[in-house]
Amino acid sequence: MISNIPRIKHSQTNNFFLMAGPCVIEGEEIALRIAERIVSITDKLQIPLIFKGSYRKANRSRLDSFTGIGDDTALKILAKVGREFDIPCVTDIHESNEAAMAAEYVDVLQIPAFLCRQTDLLIAAAKTGKTVNVKKGQFLSAGSMRFAVDKITDSGNPNVILTDRGNTFGYQDIIVDYRGIPEMRDFGVPVVMDCTHSLQQPNQASGVTGGKPALIETIGKAAIAVGADGLFIETHPDPANAKSDGANMLQLDLLEGLMTKLVRIREAIL
């Protein structure tokens, strides 16, 4: 169901697909370096890949948090990644007027979890004709995401992906209810598990979100076992010094080993 995305490779395999890359575009050199490594791994394992990078982070806890290197600069870097490696790219949009702008550079538009009920934003994304990946709000049930799908498809765009990123549990933790994956798959769209944001520890006293990256493998294994179509993983060669969400990102050097294990699980359940 993702074969309609331009430049997607290996879509004829029975593998899950992967949306992976840094949290935010920090610069051209590091974006290309991360993309090169991910492409090498996914080509080896025949995993369809969509490269991920936010051109701007609009939802930050503190005013002094890093938000980006400039919209135009970051979007041009994403476009270069797509051209150089012949792969599709995905980025977040935050307001309706960003949809057409971002659609000129990327193949998939992503709706952040906190914005998944914003009707005007969903319609604007749908009208671009691009595939729209909607992250499930931490505050919503899986069943509620049917209405997000309807808003996009009723706007004339059948190309929808839903991504689960866990549910708010108290003030500073998130849990994953794996029943939501088959429930959302029943809507007739691909369902992705966000293995990194589902391990966030938001609302820390410091104003910097925490995380539990040691459990990324656990989240990924369980998601594949219950039938997730894809995985979303933010990764960086040096998470401790990443400019955004480093506390829950996967160390890039660990990606190949993880993907190898998950491909085996996928093969076992088919």
Results as ranks from 00 to 15, higher is better:
residue 31 A to T: 12
residue 76 K to V: 06
residue 90 V to P: 12
residue 16 F to R: 15
residue 228 A to T: 06
residue 144 S to M: 15
residue 179 R to T: 06
residue 143 G to M: 11
residue 260 T to R: 15
residue 30 I to C: 12
residue 39 V to M: 03
residue 163 T to L: 14
residue 64 D to Q: 02
residue 244 S to E: 10
residue 44 K to M: 10
residue 195 C to R: 09
residue 130 K to V: 03
residue 237 P to K: 02
residue 205 A to V: 11
residue 224 I to T: 06
residue 25 I to A: 06
residue 67 T to R: 15
residue 270 L to Q: 15
residue 138 Q to F: 12
residue 183 E to V: 15
residue 169 F to W: 10
residue 207 G to P: 03
residue 176 V to S: 06
residue 268 A to V: 11
residue 129 G to C: 11
residue 75 L to A: 07
residue 251 Q to H: 02
residue 15 N to D: 08
residue 83 R to D: 09
residue 98 E to P: 03
residue 228 A to V: 11
residue 239 P to R: 02
residue 53 G to W: 09
residue 244 S to W: 10
residue 86 D to E: 01
residue 90 V to A: 05
residue 189 V to L: 14
residue 170 G to K: 09
residue 15 N to P: 10
residue 111 I to T: 05
residue 148 A to P: 13
residue 19 M to L: 15
residue 197 H to Q: 12
residue 98 E to I: 02
residue 197 H to C: 04
residue 109 L to H: 10
residue 161 I to L: 15
residue 102 A to Y: 14
residue 208 V to P: 02
residue 151 K to N: 14
residue 177 D to P: 00
residue 239 P to C: 04
residue 125 A to Y: 07
residue 67 T to D: 08
residue 182 P to F: 02
residue 120 D to K: 06
residue 135 K to H: 12
residue 254 L to I: 01
residue 204 Q to V: 01
residue 235 T to F: 03
residue 107 D to L: 08
residue 81 V to T: 00
residue 72 D to N: 14
residue 117 R to Y: 06
residue 158 P to H: 07
residue 97 N to E: 02
residue 80 K to A: 11
residue 130 K to S: 02
residue 83 R to G: 01
residue 142 A to P: 14
residue 24 V to Y: 08
residue 221 K to A: 03
residue 192 V to K: 06
residue 108 V to D: 07
residue 14 N to E: 12
residue 166 G to Y: 11
residue 263 V to F: 12
residue 194 D to Y: 09
residue 163 T to I: 13
residue 175 I to H: 05
residue 97 N to P: 00
residue 186 D to W: 07
residue 101 M to E: 03
residue 87 I to T: 00
residue 204 Q to P: 01
residue 112 P to F: 15
residue 51 F to R: 05
residue 234 E to A: 01
residue 73 T to L: 15
residue 137 G to N: 13
residue 78 L to W: 09
residue 59 N to E: 07
residue 240 A to T: 04
residue 170 G to Q: 14
residue 39 V to L: 04
residue 213 P to L: 09
residue 60 R to A: 03
residue 49 L to C: 00
residue 180 G to L: 03
residue 153 T to K: 11
residue 46 Q to E: 10
residue 247 A to M: 11
residue 4 N to F: 15
residue 216 I to Q: 02
residue 173 D to P: 08
residue 213 P to W: 09
residue 108 V to S: 08
residue 14 N to I: 08
residue 267 E to K: 13
residue 133 N to R: 12
residue 28 E to N: 06
residue 248 N to G: 01
residue 56 R to Q: 15
residue 159 N to M: 05
residue 62 R to K: 03
residue 158 P to M: 10
residue 14 N to W: 05
residue 39 V to Y: 10
